[in-house]
């Protein structure tokens, strides 16, 4: 049994230590907002925060997350995350929506570190998150919009 702290809640997880955190979160804990896209940290759909930093949970062994603070899309409720979500709705960013949990987790981490990101900052922080629907233009605008809201 491994003990995980997800969204400030404690879970006992019966998983092999090498199981990626993604599958522990989805299949065992039952939080399905975090998505599977590629399994090799190339698409970013599985992005969660570990101690506040964005991590691709598909390539992060569950055992390494023990004792750390894990935040998923379901637990994103502080000021920056809420602003991002609000901007995402205002600019109607999602299309199919599947990659958006990951986009939002990456965008939230960016804004926490850089409250006024430039386009280049956004490119650097967000290029690990693929969107097949092609919502990039709105992702960019919504990050700028959220930055304005927080001010």
């Amino acid at each position: 049994m491994l003990q995980l702290t997800i969204n400030n809640k404690s879970y006992q997880v019966d998983a092999s230590p090498d199981m990626p955190l993604l599958w522990a979160i989805r299949d065992i804990v039952g939080l399905t907002g975090t998505k599977f896209g590629c399994g090799i940290a190339q698409c970013g759909a599985c992005t969660v925060h570990i101690d506040g930093s964005p991590v691709r949970s598909c390539s992060f062994p569950v055992a390494a997350a023990v004792g750390k603070k894990i935040t998923t899309i379901e637990g994103l409720n502080e000021k920056v995350g809420a602003a991002i979500q609000k901007a995402w709705i205002e600019l109607q960013v999602p299309q199919c929506g599947y990659c958006q949990s990951g986009q939002i987790m990456s965008a939230t981490a960016l804004l926490r570190n850089k409250p006024n990101p430039t386009d280049a900052d956004i490119d650097a922080a967000m290029q690990g998150n693929l969107c097949r629907c092609g919502t990039y233009q709105r992702v960019r605008s919504a990050i700028h919009r959220a930055a304005e809201m927080i001010k």
Binding site: T34, K35, Q85, Q92
Partner: peptide, 22 residues
């Protein structure tokens, strides 16, 4: 440009895709 009712579900992890069925 009426807001899409599925968008709020797609920013907080509650939208149910096929892969989320259980």
């Amino acid at each position: 440009s009426t807001p899409r009712p599925d968008v709020p579900l797609k920013v907080n992890g509650t939208a149910q895709f096929g892969i989320d069925a259980s």
